[in-house]
Design a binder for these strands. Structure first.
Length: 294
DNA sequence: ATTTGACCCTGCATGC
DNA sequence: TGCATGCAGGGTCAAA
């Protein structure tokens, strides 16, 4: 489900409902995700207050600090006596995998199948994680987020300045792999998954099977512009809902209507009318127009 | 060093 | 109707 636009849509949707809230209860119904939910997850979170949400690649970052302390490193007076752990500052690293979604619900709304985790807030709202395939995960980071090995090696954000055609050109020299899996490599650029890689290559007129190392700088500049264009448009549309993606407030995304190639093999190219072809690249379905993409 | 394949898991569409 | 098969938005790891 979620590529960058869907994670960004989720972040924007849930932020107004979670930022500044205190977590008063955490319910883990199914902790066996791709990374198992840590044993001390509940203890660490209860009593924390949520700071401004961020996103890095397809990761949602949720900063937490102790709700009752005003000074960094301070201690709650009665904590020791009561034997209650005082939560410490940290960040939740949340990945939605293939089928995960986060949405806002109210206390009393019954969980459905595959609603694995609830964070319950002091205002009666809650953040509910749903993930049928359980390829997603949530982890708690104590230290610097950028030092985490999962984030340390990531390439630039596609909507940031360091991502451009020159970078694609430079990193692709000598690479024989097809350009589509190259574009989906998170060390090259983050957040470009199977849907938007196919769409960007169509917009740029590049055959997804072409060797990455045999594409000119000029064409990579077109590709970088196409990546930015398609991701920005998808964010504006609230992401792409293929099956069950919903924003943080339960709305589907409307970008599906704008897809030119993804999921349309056998249908007519919107530009030339030819039949769209399906090939497999890097074990991922790849649809393209043999007339419009070279 | 680069690239490929298996794997994590459930649900759905398809074909027999 | 049931059953087997293949495929799905992602990422990691081992092996070639």
């Amino acid at each position: 489900m979620p590529e960058l636009p869907e994670v960004e849509t989720t972040r924007r949707g849930i932020a107004p409902h979670v930022e500044g809230r205190e977590i008063v209860e955490v319910i883990v119904r199914q902790g066996r995700l791709r990374v198992p939910v840590p044993d001390d997850f509940v203890d660490r979170l209860v009593g924390s207050r949520i700071g401004p949400l961020a996103r890095r690649a397809k990761y949602l970052l949720i900063p937490l600090r102790p709700a009752e302390t005003d000074t960094p490193g301070g201690r709650r007076e009665d904590a020791g006596a009561a034997g209650v752990e005082v939560p410490s500052s940290g960040t939740l690293l949340w990945h939605l995998g293939m089928s995960g979604s986060l949405r806002i619900a109210r206390l009393g709304e019954l969980p459905k199948k595959h609603d694995h985790i609830d964070l319950v807030f002091d205002d009666g709202g809650l953040l509910r994680y749903h993930d049928p395939r359980r390829f997603g995960f949530v982890d708690w980071l104590a230290g610097g987020v950028e030092q985490d090995p999962r984030l340390a090696r990531l390439g630039p954000e596609p909507l940031s300045d360091p991502f451009d055609g020159e970078r694609l050109y430079r990193l692709s020299r000598g690479r024989r792999m097809a350009v589509k899996p190259f574009l989906m490599d998170n060390e090259v650029v983050v957040g470009v998954g199977n849907i938007y890689a196919a769409e960007a290559l169509f917009l740029a007129g590049i055959d997804p099977r072409r060797a990455a190392g045999r594409i000119s700088l000029e064409r990579y500049e077109r590709l970088a512009a196409a990546v930015r264009e398609v991701l920005a448009a998808a964010i504006t549309q609230g992401g792409t809902t293929l099956r069950d993606f919903v924003s943080g407030t339960g709305e589907p995304g409307y970008f599906k209507q704008r897809l030119n190639v993804y999921g349309r093999h056998g249908q007519a190219c919107r530009r030339c009318g030819g039949e769209l072809r399906l090939v497999t690249l890097g074990q991922r379905a790849s649809v393209f127009c043999i007339e419009c993409q070279h």
